[in-house]
Protein backbone atom coordinates (compact mmCIF):
# COMPACT_ATOMS: atom_id res chain seq x y z
CA UNK A 1 0.00 0.00 0.00
CA UNK A 2 1.29 3.44 -0.75
CA UNK A 3 1.68 5.94 2.00
CA UNK A 4 -1.15 8.04 0.68
CA UNK A 5 -3.48 5.05 0.65
CA UNK A 6 -2.59 4.23 4.27
CA UNK A 7 -3.35 7.74 5.28
CA UNK A 8 -6.71 7.51 3.54
CA UNK A 9 -7.51 4.36 5.53
CA UNK A 10 -6.60 6.05 8.80
CA UNK A 11 -8.77 8.93 7.80
CA UNK A 12 -11.92 6.93 7.43
CA UNK A 13 -11.66 4.12 9.99
CA UNK A 14 -10.29 3.99 13.52
CA UNK A 15 -7.41 1.64 14.16
CA UNK A 16 -8.54 -1.47 16.03
CA UNK A 17 -6.31 -0.62 19.00
CA UNK A 18 -7.71 2.90 19.26
CA UNK A 19 -11.31 1.81 19.74
CA UNK A 20 -12.60 2.72 23.19
CA UNK A 21 -16.25 1.80 22.74
CA UNK A 22 -17.93 -0.06 19.95
CA UNK A 23 -21.63 -0.32 19.19
CA UNK A 24 -22.74 -3.26 17.04
CA UNK A 25 -26.27 -3.48 15.62
CA UNK A 26 -27.67 -1.30 18.42
CA UNK A 27 -31.45 -0.96 18.29
CA UNK A 28 -33.56 0.77 20.92
CA UNK A 29 -37.29 0.41 21.48
CA UNK A 30 -39.53 2.65 23.61
CA UNK A 31 -42.40 0.27 24.14
CA UNK A 32 -43.61 -0.58 20.64
CA UNK A 33 -41.82 2.28 18.99
CA UNK A 34 -38.33 1.71 17.62
CA UNK A 35 -36.08 4.72 18.15
CA UNK A 36 -32.76 3.41 16.87
CA UNK A 37 -32.15 0.99 13.97
CA UNK A 38 -29.06 -1.25 13.89
CA UNK A 39 -26.47 1.40 14.58
CA UNK A 40 -22.80 0.43 14.18
CA UNK A 41 -20.51 3.10 15.58
CA UNK A 42 -17.05 3.11 17.11
CA UNK A 43 -15.72 5.67 19.56
CA UNK A 44 -12.00 6.43 19.40
CA UNK A 45 -9.84 6.69 22.51
CA UNK A 46 -8.77 10.16 23.67
CA UNK A 47 -10.73 11.98 21.06
CA UNK A 48 -13.99 13.85 20.81
CA UNK A 49 -16.78 12.20 18.85
CA UNK A 50 -19.70 14.45 17.94
CA UNK A 51 -23.18 13.05 17.30
CA UNK A 52 -25.23 15.35 15.07
CA UNK A 53 -28.61 15.23 13.39
CA UNK A 54 -32.05 16.84 13.56
CA UNK A 55 -34.18 16.61 16.73
CA UNK A 56 -35.60 13.18 17.40
CA UNK A 57 -33.01 11.43 15.23
CA UNK A 58 -31.85 9.15 18.05
CA UNK A 59 -28.47 10.69 18.83
CA UNK A 60 -29.29 11.30 22.49
CA UNK A 61 -30.80 7.83 22.72
CA UNK A 62 -27.56 6.33 21.43
CA UNK A 63 -25.55 8.44 23.87
CA UNK A 64 -27.65 7.27 26.80
CA UNK A 65 -27.09 3.65 25.75
CA UNK A 66 -23.35 4.08 26.25
CA UNK A 67 -23.67 4.20 30.05
CA UNK A 68 -27.05 2.50 30.28
CA UNK A 69 -28.89 5.63 31.44
CA UNK A 70 -31.80 4.26 29.46
CA UNK A 71 -32.20 1.65 32.21
CA UNK A 72 -33.95 4.31 34.28
CA UNK A 73 -36.77 4.43 31.73
CA UNK A 74 -39.11 1.51 32.34
CA UNK A 75 -40.35 0.94 28.82
CA UNK A 76 -36.97 1.19 27.12
CA UNK A 77 -35.40 -1.96 25.59
CA UNK A 78 -31.94 -2.17 23.97
CA UNK A 79 -30.75 -4.91 21.59
CA UNK A 80 -27.37 -5.42 19.94
CA UNK A 81 -24.01 -5.11 21.61
CA UNK A 82 -22.02 -2.20 23.05
CA UNK A 83 -18.51 -2.87 24.29
CA UNK A 84 -16.22 -0.85 26.52
CA UNK A 85 -12.61 -1.99 26.04
CA UNK A 86 -13.94 -5.15 24.44
CA UNK A 87 -16.35 -5.95 27.28
CA UNK A 88 -20.10 -6.05 26.57
CA UNK A 89 -21.73 -3.48 28.87
CA UNK A 90 -25.15 -5.11 28.53
CA UNK A 91 -23.77 -8.40 29.87
CA UNK A 92 -25.79 -9.37 32.99
CA UNK A 93 -22.51 -9.77 34.86
CA UNK A 94 -21.72 -6.08 34.45
CA UNK A 95 -22.51 -3.87 37.46
CA UNK A 96 -24.32 -0.89 36.02
CA UNK A 97 -23.27 1.33 38.91
CA UNK A 98 -19.61 0.57 38.23
CA UNK A 99 -20.14 1.11 34.51
CA UNK A 100 -21.51 4.59 35.12
CA UNK A 101 -18.47 5.39 37.23
CA UNK A 102 -16.33 4.50 34.20
CA UNK A 103 -18.59 6.25 31.70
CA UNK A 104 -19.66 9.56 33.21
CA UNK A 105 -22.31 11.91 31.91
CA UNK A 106 -22.94 15.65 31.65
CA UNK A 107 -26.48 16.71 30.90
CA UNK A 108 -28.16 19.27 28.69
CA UNK A 109 -29.32 21.47 31.53
CA UNK A 110 -26.81 22.12 34.30
CA UNK A 111 -28.05 20.07 37.24
CA UNK A 112 -25.89 20.74 40.29
CA UNK A 113 -27.24 19.14 43.44
CA UNK A 114 -28.69 21.57 46.00
CA UNK A 115 -25.49 21.21 48.02
CA UNK A 116 -22.31 23.25 48.34
CA UNK A 117 -19.86 23.44 45.44
CA UNK A 118 -17.42 21.27 47.37
CA UNK A 119 -20.08 18.66 48.16
CA UNK A 120 -21.17 18.55 44.53
CA UNK A 121 -17.69 17.54 43.41
CA UNK A 122 -17.01 15.31 46.43
CA UNK A 123 -20.25 13.39 45.87
CA UNK A 124 -18.87 10.87 43.34
CA UNK A 125 -15.56 10.12 45.10
CA UNK A 126 -17.47 9.68 48.36
CA UNK A 127 -20.00 7.14 47.11
CA UNK A 128 -17.29 5.17 45.32
CA UNK A 129 -14.91 5.32 48.28
CA UNK A 130 -12.10 6.73 46.16
CA UNK A 131 -10.39 8.50 49.04
CA UNK A 132 -9.19 7.58 52.49
CA UNK A 133 -8.82 10.98 54.07
CA UNK A 134 -10.22 14.43 53.98
CA UNK A 135 -6.96 15.72 52.55
CA UNK A 136 -7.17 13.35 49.59
CA UNK A 137 -10.77 14.37 48.99
CA UNK A 138 -9.76 18.04 49.11
CA UNK A 139 -7.13 17.27 46.53
CA UNK A 140 -9.54 15.50 44.19
CA UNK A 141 -12.04 18.35 44.50
CA UNK A 142 -9.40 20.93 43.73
CA UNK A 143 -7.88 19.05 40.79
CA UNK A 144 -11.32 18.32 39.31
CA UNK A 145 -12.33 21.95 39.59
CA UNK A 146 -9.02 22.95 38.04
CA UNK A 147 -9.45 20.52 35.15
CA UNK A 148 -12.93 21.90 34.61
CA UNK A 149 -11.41 25.41 34.45
CA UNK A 150 -13.59 26.77 37.22
CA UNK A 151 -11.25 26.60 40.21
CA UNK A 152 -10.18 30.24 40.05
CA UNK A 153 -13.81 31.40 40.07
CA UNK A 154 -15.01 29.29 42.98
CA UNK A 155 -11.99 28.63 45.21
CA UNK A 156 -13.10 31.22 47.77
CA UNK A 157 -16.69 30.05 47.90
CA UNK A 158 -16.41 26.27 47.94
CA UNK A 159 -19.00 25.99 50.67
CA UNK A 160 -21.66 28.11 49.06
CA UNK A 161 -24.48 26.33 47.23
CA UNK A 162 -23.71 25.16 43.70
CA UNK A 163 -27.13 26.36 42.56
CA UNK A 164 -26.02 29.95 43.18
CA UNK A 165 -23.53 29.90 40.29
CA UNK A 166 -24.26 31.25 36.81
CA UNK A 167 -25.44 28.81 34.13
CA UNK A 168 -22.02 28.45 32.52
CA UNK A 169 -20.31 28.01 35.88
CA UNK A 170 -22.93 25.43 36.87
CA UNK A 171 -22.24 23.43 33.73
CA UNK A 172 -18.50 23.48 34.36
CA UNK A 173 -19.21 22.44 37.94
CA UNK A 174 -21.18 19.48 36.56
CA UNK A 175 -18.23 18.60 34.35
CA UNK A 176 -15.93 18.81 37.40
CA UNK A 177 -18.34 16.56 39.22
CA UNK A 178 -18.14 14.02 36.40
CA UNK A 179 -14.32 14.23 36.22
CA UNK A 180 -13.98 13.70 39.98
CA UNK A 181 -14.77 9.99 39.72
CA UNK A 182 -12.00 9.69 37.04
CA UNK A 183 -14.16 8.14 34.36
CA UNK A 184 -12.66 6.77 31.16
CA UNK A 185 -15.38 8.17 28.95
CA UNK A 186 -17.45 11.33 29.41
CA UNK A 187 -20.78 11.59 27.63
CA UNK A 188 -22.12 15.09 27.04
CA UNK A 189 -25.73 15.63 26.00
CA UNK A 190 -25.89 19.09 24.39
CA UNK A 191 -23.81 20.57 27.21
CA UNK A 192 -23.96 24.11 25.85
CA UNK A 193 -27.58 24.40 24.74
CA UNK A 194 -28.56 26.29 27.90
CA UNK A 195 -25.52 28.57 27.90
CA UNK A 196 -24.71 31.97 26.40
CA UNK A 197 -21.93 32.29 23.76
CA UNK A 198 -19.20 33.27 26.23
CA UNK A 199 -19.94 30.36 28.57
CA UNK A 200 -20.19 28.11 25.52
CA UNK A 201 -16.73 29.15 24.36
CA UNK A 202 -15.32 28.33 27.78
CA UNK A 203 -16.93 24.90 27.87
CA UNK A 204 -15.75 24.14 24.33
CA UNK A 205 -12.21 25.10 25.24
CA UNK A 206 -12.51 22.82 28.24
CA UNK A 207 -13.71 19.90 26.12
CA UNK A 208 -10.69 20.27 23.89
CA UNK A 209 -8.36 20.18 26.89
CA UNK A 210 -10.10 17.18 28.46
CA UNK A 211 -9.48 15.13 25.33
CA UNK A 212 -5.95 14.42 26.58
CA UNK A 213 -7.19 12.37 29.52
CA UNK A 214 -10.68 11.25 28.58
CA UNK A 215 -12.64 9.88 25.69
CA UNK A 216 -15.52 12.23 24.97
CA UNK A 217 -18.78 11.72 23.12
CA UNK A 218 -20.84 14.86 22.63
CA UNK A 219 -24.33 15.38 21.25
CA UNK A 220 -24.75 18.80 19.71
CA UNK A 221 -27.16 20.79 17.60
CA UNK A 222 -24.52 23.28 16.61
CA UNK A 223 -22.61 22.43 13.44
CA UNK A 224 -19.93 24.96 14.34
CA UNK A 225 -19.50 23.34 17.71
CA UNK A 226 -19.13 19.88 16.18
CA UNK A 227 -16.58 21.26 13.73
CA UNK A 228 -14.67 23.12 16.44
CA UNK A 229 -14.38 20.47 19.14
CA UNK A 230 -14.63 17.03 17.55
CA UNK A 231 -12.22 14.81 15.68
CA UNK A 232 -14.87 12.42 14.42
CA UNK A 233 -18.52 13.07 13.67
CA UNK A 234 -21.51 10.77 13.29
CA UNK A 235 -24.67 11.94 11.57
CA UNK A 236 -28.02 10.41 12.60
CA UNK A 237 -31.36 10.71 10.86
CA UNK A 238 -34.68 9.06 11.76
CA UNK A 239 -32.97 6.60 14.08
CA UNK A 240 -30.38 5.48 11.58
CA UNK A 241 -26.69 6.28 11.33
CA UNK A 242 -26.34 8.09 8.01
CA UNK A 243 -22.64 8.71 7.91
CA UNK A 244 -19.64 8.82 10.20
CA UNK A 245 -16.02 9.73 9.79
CA UNK A 246 -13.30 12.28 10.40
CA UNK A 247 -14.87 15.62 11.19
CA UNK A 248 -12.80 17.70 8.78
CA UNK A 249 -13.64 15.45 5.89
CA UNK A 250 -17.29 15.25 6.82
CA UNK A 251 -17.68 19.01 6.93
CA UNK A 252 -15.77 19.66 3.71
CA UNK A 253 -16.67 16.66 1.62
CA UNK A 254 -19.60 14.64 3.00
CA UNK A 255 -20.44 11.36 1.35
CA UNK A 256 -24.20 11.68 1.37
CA UNK A 257 -26.52 14.40 0.14
CA UNK A 258 -28.45 14.22 3.42
CA UNK A 259 -25.39 15.12 5.49
CA UNK A 260 -24.45 17.89 3.13
CA UNK A 261 -27.94 19.37 3.33
CA UNK A 262 -27.99 19.16 7.09
CA UNK A 263 -24.51 20.65 7.55
CA UNK A 264 -25.21 23.52 5.21
CA UNK A 265 -28.46 24.21 6.96
CA UNK A 266 -30.78 23.28 4.14
CA UNK A 267 -32.89 21.13 6.45
CA UNK A 268 -33.09 20.22 10.11
Amino acid sequence: MTEAATEMAVDTAIKESAIKMRGTDVSVFYGEKQALFDVNLDVARNSVTALIGPSGCGKSTFLRCLNRMNDTIDICRVTGEITLEGENIYDPKIDVVELRARVGMVFQKPNPFPKSIYENVAYGPRIHGLTNSRAELDEIVESSLRKAAIWEEVKDRLHEPGTGLSGGQQQRLCIARAIAVSPEVILMDEPCSALDPIATAKVEELIDELRGNFTIVIVTHSMQQAARVSQRTAMFHLGKLVEEGVTDKMFTNPETKLTQDYITGRFG
Partner: peptide, 18 residues
Protein backbone atom coordinates in the same frame (compact mmCIF):
# COMPACT_ATOMS: atom_id res chain seq x y z
CA UNK B 1 -37.63 17.05 42.85
CA UNK B 2 -36.52 17.43 39.23
CA UNK B 3 -35.59 14.28 37.31
CA UNK B 4 -32.32 16.05 36.42
CA UNK B 5 -31.18 15.60 40.04
CA UNK B 6 -31.70 11.84 39.81
CA UNK B 7 -30.05 11.64 36.39
CA UNK B 8 -27.06 13.58 37.68
CA UNK B 9 -26.63 11.19 40.55
CA UNK B 10 -27.19 8.00 38.52
CA UNK B 11 -24.83 9.36 35.87
CA UNK B 12 -22.08 9.42 38.49
CA UNK B 13 -22.66 5.79 39.30
CA UNK B 14 -24.79 6.21 42.44
CA UNK B 15 -27.29 3.51 43.37
CA UNK B 16 -30.95 4.23 43.95
CA UNK B 17 -30.76 4.35 47.73
CA UNK B 18 -27.60 6.49 47.65
Amino acid sequence: VPQAMRDGSYGLGATKSE
